[in-house]
Amino acid sequence: MSCRSLMLLLLLGTALPYAQASAEMPAADTPPATFNGPMPSPDEVLAIPSGLSALLHARVIAPGNGREERLQRLAEMIFDRDGMDLQYDADATYTVAETWQYRRANCLSFTLLFVTLARESGIQARVQEVEQVVSWYQDAGALYSVGHVNAGIGINGREATVDLDRNVLYDRQGPRPISDARALAHFYNNRGAAQMEAGDVQGARAYLQASLRQADDFTAALNNLGVLESRQGHLSLAKAYYLRALQAAPRHVASLANASALLARLGEARQAARLQLRLQNVRQGDPFIQYGLGVQAERAGDADRAIRFYRRAIRLYGSAHQFHFALARAYVMSGNLPRADHELMRAQELGGTALQTRYQEKLDSLQRWRRQQASLRVH
């Protein structure tokens, strides 16, 4: 899952005063390294512990007013230092109770928490799923991710999205509402993947199978079970999981790559070649994959390759200001400053008001650098 900065994409109201909780806030516990305890049931994943329930009623529900005000107070309760003071942790796939206990969450845990508490507060809320995202971080650059969730809110006939990551670019389909069962499939799949990486084969298998009990066509869990069984040498079982994943999602990149490699290993060259061809076609037509290849080329110092990949990403998804910004960087690397100027201006046009200043600073910096270079050439 992709999400890094604790920032709401959209809040519908203005900041309002809230009532103080009557009970003193307990300190956060130290999170466990792995999920070795009993597997939580679906009801346990979403259960609100008594301490959090008391805080919710004191800070959000008891002051009254309308749903917009309650939504604002809920956000404040979750993020304020005298509330939960929730912090981001990429590995924190927690139940609602665990999120309260440890005060940490990734995008999935946050979404489950927010939707559960919003519903308890009388606010219409749902979990939403995005198949692909790209996120930009100030220090780490860009991260391409398959799979992301956030919260959808309905208030007074209006719709809003609440997301941990304010720098995320969704795929063209954008967030889509999903059932609670599918949201729980995400939870169990995340836990299964974490246990697999920790070397807990039995625990991983149990969690991934629990994911499929929530949604039997959940591609990520099917693919992860294929990986798990392949690592254990159960190649026929791994093949069955990969093919089930591709039946559910014929263009799923990870399953295509894994299945084609396994079939080649099993000597099924013709079927492996068919999947490889499909994989190549998917990659060629996916702007996010082309962008990711551009990032790799840029980091390797290959400006020409980066330009080719970024331009292809833009042909496939031309309204993404982030892609134009990446292409501008590649043009600077190649020494083509007029093209870099053009792409920066295009990024500024597409980025909207919130990003106007950022891109103008980049343009000003580039133009100052060009004047400095011209001055050096004159002398």
Rank of each mutant, 00 (worst) to 15 (best):
Q373W: 05
Y331S: 07
L263Q: 02
H234I: 04
R231K: 13
L169K: 13
Q132I: 13
A320G: 04
R251L: 14
Y188E: 00
L11Y: 06
D180E: 15
E76L: 11
P32K: 01
A33L: 15
E131S: 15
R329C: 06
G199P: 11
W369P: 00
R305Y: 08
I178L: 10
A118F: 01
E361W: 02
M77W: 05
Y241W: 12
G37D: 05
P177I: 05
H379E: 08
G174H: 06
L275I: 04
R308G: 02
R278P: 01
R265M: 14
Q132A: 14
R166I: 12
E24D: 13
D341R: 15
N65K: 12
A257G: 10
Q290E: 10
F218W: 01
R265D: 08
I289Y: 09
T34I: 11
V115N: 06
A181P: 02
R346Q: 14
E76H: 10
A269S: 12
L6T: 12
R251I: 14
N224W: 06
A313Y: 06
L113R: 02
H148D: 09
E197L: 13
A33T: 15
F218G: 02
Y94R: 01
H252T: 02
A328P: 05
G199R: 06
L56D: 01
E229F: 15
A27R: 07
H57F: 07
R251P: 01
H148T: 08
W136Y: 13
G147D: 03
K362A: 13
G83K: 09
T14L: 15
S135C: 12
T30P: 02
P40N: 06
L12D: 12
S236G: 11
W100Y: 12
